[in-house]
Amino acid sequence: MKMDKNKIGKLLTASAVPMLFLLICLFAIPLSQFSGSYLLNNIVTRLIRNSFLVLALLLPVMAGMGINFGMVLGAMAGQIGLIFVTDWGVPGAPGLILAAIIATPIAMLLGYFGGRVLNRAKGREMITSMMLGLFISGIYQFFLLYVCGSIVPFKTPGMLLSRGYGVRNALTLNVAKGFDKLLLIRIGGVNIPVGTFMIIGLICVFTVWFKKTKMGQDMRAVGQDMHVASTAGIAMEKTRIQSIMISTVLACYGQIIYLQNIGTLNTYNGADQAALFAAAALLVGGATVSKATIPNAIIGTALFHLMFLVMPMAGKYITGQAMLGEYFRMFVSYGVVTLALVLHSWKRQKDKEMDRSQFRIAVANPPDK
């Protein structure tokens, strides 16, 4: 009976974060005064827009490297691909595929560099990957501000600043809705882009398959214990680099899917929040910095963006001021990561206490011989 109580306790602590944010959403939905069809339409839109980016975080977590805030490197690579495709005037899904082809080698190179750096910062991967993203952002902005149009020729003068070089701050993408329009159906007033959902399904299938491969098993072993994995003959540092490279390339594709859904590109700041929002969504789904699954990613994306959608209007109706609603939005988006990490630390402590309790019970009541 006590063992069952411990199992129930572990289940409750594991689901504490998603349950908390579900309660916040249930509280805020009536206050926001949004209709059910409006909320459902927006949740479907945000799922297809953000799920791929969140799923790109799973492999580094499995490899024991925590949340890969360096995924912004892949997002920047994806944006570079979209900028060139927009300049060349390639529309729709072919333009998106071409953007992915252009961006893939850039993402692989950045992922390899990021993996090498993180191997020198073992135990501090998350903060190091965040700093790495800021460093590469400077190089990315230099490339777009001074190299594009001066050294790298552009066919479309309207994409450049008035001085003749440097990409404009905002661009309208000619590949907008390229994947979303491939197979679009409407059910009960809700638009469902089946084509984009199929692409998201592919990364889920890839993740499940990859975990069963030798490389996936090596990543799992490295994530559980680097010393034991190294003793067993696994190339630990190489495996960690591979996990970051794959994550960076997937983040590149995720940013392309995200931007084709929006239809516009914020040239210089578009990738800045990608890692923060993806990490927040993953943590809200019940993942931790040491364990994350596909359901964590999908549930977390839906819950986080539902809360992100209803909180500003709920804040507006509570306080009577629209600006305070926007402050609620920013408070929630940044605070959710902090709160989820605090709850994760609390969960780890509770799990340790339950394990000690089970050990004492087992010692006090040895099995009959």
Rank of each mutant, 00 (worst) to 15 (best):
D4L: 14
K5G: 03
K7L: 08
L23N: 02
C25P: 01
A28N: 10
F34I: 08
S37P: 03
N42G: 08
L47R: 03
N50Y: 07
A56G: 11
V61I: 15
A77Q: 10
G81W: 07
G81I: 13
G81D: 07
I83C: 08
D87F: 00
G92S: 13
P94I: 11
P94K: 08
G95R: 00
T104G: 02
I106F: 07
L110I: 02
G115E: 14
N119Q: 09
N119M: 04
R120A: 14
E125P: 03
M131H: 04
M131N: 02
S137Q: 14
C148G: 01
K155I: 09
M159T: 12
M159F: 12
M159E: 13
S162I: 11
G164C: 05
A170N: 06
N174V: 13
F179T: 08
L182T: 07
L184Y: 04
R186M: 13
T196M: 09
I199K: 00
C204L: 05
C204N: 09
C204F: 12
V205Q: 05
V205M: 15
G216E: 11
M219Y: 11
G223Y: 01
A229Q: 05
S230T: 06
S230F: 10
A232T: 14
G233Y: 13
K238D: 12
S247G: 06
I262W: 00
N266H: 09
T267D: 14
Y268P: 03
D272E: 10
L276D: 07
L276V: 13
A279W: 03
A281Q: 06
G285D: 04
G286V: 12
P295L: 14
N296G: 15
L303D: 02
F308C: 00
V310T: 10
K316P: 02
Q321H: 12
A322G: 01
V336K: 01
V337E: 01
V337G: 01
L339I: 14
L341N: 01
H344S: 10
K347F: 02
R356F: 14
P367R: 03
